[in-house]
Each structure stands twice: as structure tokens, then as C-alpha cells.
Design a binder for these strands. Structure first.
Lengths: 156, 156
DNA sequence: CCTTATAGTGAACCAGGTTGTCTATCGTGT
DNA sequence: ACACGATAGACAACCTGGTTCACTATAAGG
């Protein structure tokens, strides 16, 4: 009685949907003066947040080692999206803070994501999109930051 | 008038959904005798197909360089999922074919994906799941194999 | 028959991840 | 007061999987 598609289509569509959004985001970001932004940069900047963080903390948030977090911070620092400053009260720590460029990237990303979402709503209907999001929330973990994105694809 | 979530949640949920399915798949595959299968292996095996392919062809299908495709084939060969054979009519070519282990991995993956899909259907309802898939089909490209998965995340 | 295109491979490199090690600093318990 | 354990950051070595460049062998066509 099944008009159901094969099960493997579902993950593929989810991934394709993700990819389409991310690709569109970065095409638009490149047009708006952020040609070097990469898929995870916005995500990491979001995880860093307005108050700043440290490498260890960021690693915990993202679910990667502190060294990996440190490398990512290096890259973002090189691109001018974050800066490091020593913590006065604990000179071991280095606070990572968003630069104006980092804030700009985040602001633009948020707006572009809203636009892209509106585009999806125009295609499939706003109600269906809300349902889609609600359904996904029910089958995915609540903590949206623990993507464990980096390296999961090559996880042994 | 908006009870809509911020736009950035959508890609995250899509990715999380993908990740959940893939993680569950591989946990189950490991239980069923494929502990070394990695997220992209099943996908690549699927792309290779029953008739076999070549490194160049596979690269084109997957949207990566022929060298990258070759490396992936090396890995799959080492794991016993594919084998290479010279093409009699064109001795430059090496045909990559699935071994019985490769076919087994593919078969099991298909069944597990069906099970996982059924689990989602049980949570959100079969009709909502079909709608979710239908909606995703309308906002994603039709060619499900051109994931360009490898490296897209680090694309410059 | 010579030239061009193609298949496969190797090397060098890059991004990002891992673990292990080391130093500096903090903070606590005696 | 101080020694010692815990923590932050950094460095090195290594892995995976991607890239480009260069090369060889074979095919195919003017």
C-alpha cells in the first residue's frame, strides 16, 4: 500500500536542503562583501556570541577538541572576524571576541537566512514550512549548536 | 505577526536531521557487521552502481576531482567493498565494481534507512512525513547524487 | 604516423580534525 | 605560605579527504 519513497531519499533531501541554503547564503554573502566567509564561519561566530568566549569553551560548545577550536579561531582571526584579548582576571585565558566585521557577517547572515526562509515559504507555503520545522524539531536533538559538524563526516 | 522562527534554524534542523539519520544508520551498520563503514561509503557505493564505473566517471558523478574519487576508491578497495578490473576494450580504464560485501552494505543500508524512515513516520505521522519529503523535493535540486559532499564544507 | 585527448596515478599542498605533550597560571587544602 | 592538582593555551605529529600540477600509458583521429 506504499507510495512511500525509499528511505534513503530522506537523508539526502535533508542534506540537499541544507546545502542549498548554505550555498545560497554564501553566494549572497560574497556579493555583500564577505567573499572569504566559509560555511562554518557564521556558525562558529554565532557560537562565540556577543560576550566572547575562550577556545576551551568554544570547543565544548561545538563538540570538538580545544585544539580544533583554537585552529578555527586562528582562521577567523586571520580573516578579521574575531580578535583575542587576554583576560585580566585570569591571564591564562584569552577571550575571543567578535570584531565589527564578525558582527557584520552575523547580521547579514541572519537577514539572508530570513530571506531564504521566506523564499521557501513562497514555494511550499508558510504553513507547510512551519510544519516542516516543527516536525524536524521533534526528530532532532534540541541543542542546535552541538552539530559536531567538523569531522563527523570522516568519523571512524 | 510572525510566530516564525529565525531563518537560521531551518538549515540547522535540516542538517541535524541528516546527521541523526546517518549516525543511526552507522550505529546499526556497525552492529550488523560493517563497523568500518563511514558516512560517505554507502553513498559512494550507490553512486558506483551495479554496473560499475571508473574513477573519472565517479568523480564527475560526485562532483569531485578524479584524484579524489581515486582516493575514495582506494579506501573502499582496502575495506573490501569494491574491486578494480582492467577494461578489456580500453586498457587505460579500470572498472570499479561492487564486491559482495559492497552489495551487502548497500542492501543493509537500504533496509535500515527504511526502518529509520518508519521511525520518523511513527513520531510525526506518515502523512506529515510524506509532505515533508514532498516539500523538500520542491526546494532541492533533482539530481540527488551531485551532493558535492566531499569538501564542500571547506570550499573556498 | 603523428598529434591530441583521456585514464589513472603520484606528489605536494591545504583544511580541519585527533591525541599527546608542555608551559603558565589559577586556586585550593594543608 | 606554599605545594600540588586542575585548567588554558599552544605546538607537534598524524589522519582523512579534498585540491592542483605533472607524468605515463593508451586511444583515437587528421
Amino acid at each position: 500500500m506504499s507510495i512511500d519513497p525509499p528511505g534513503f531519499e530522506l537523508p539526502l533531501r535533508l542534506f540537499l536542503g541544507f546545502r542549498v541554503l548554505i550555498d545560497d547564503l554564501h553566494a549572497e554573502l560574497a556579493r555583500q562583501g564577505h567573499p572569504h566567509a566559509r560555511p562554518m564561519h557564521g556558525f562558529v561566530l554565532q557560537a562565540i556570541g556577543a560576550e566572547g568566549t575562550t577556545a576551551v569553551e568554544l570547543g565544548r560548545t561545538l563538540g570538538v577538541s580545544k585544539q580544533a577550536a583554537g585552529k578555527t579561531i586562528d582562521t577567523l582571526e586571520r580573516l578579521g572576524y574575531v580578535e583575542r584579548a587576554r583576560d585580566a582576571r585570569d591571564t591564562r585565558r584569552k577571550i575571543v571576541r567578535l570584531t565589527p566585521a564578525g558582527v557584520d557577517l552575523l547580521t547579514r547572515s541572519a537577514r539572508i537566512f530570513d530571506d531564504l526562509r521566506a523564499r521557501w515559504a513562497a514555494v511550499i507555503g508558510p504553513e507547510r514550512l512551519r510544519e516542516l520545522e516543527a516536525d524536524l524539531r521533534r526528530v532532532t536533538p534540541p541543542d542546535v549548536f552541538r552539530l559536531d559538524v567538523p569531522g563527523w563526516f570522516g568519523a571512524s
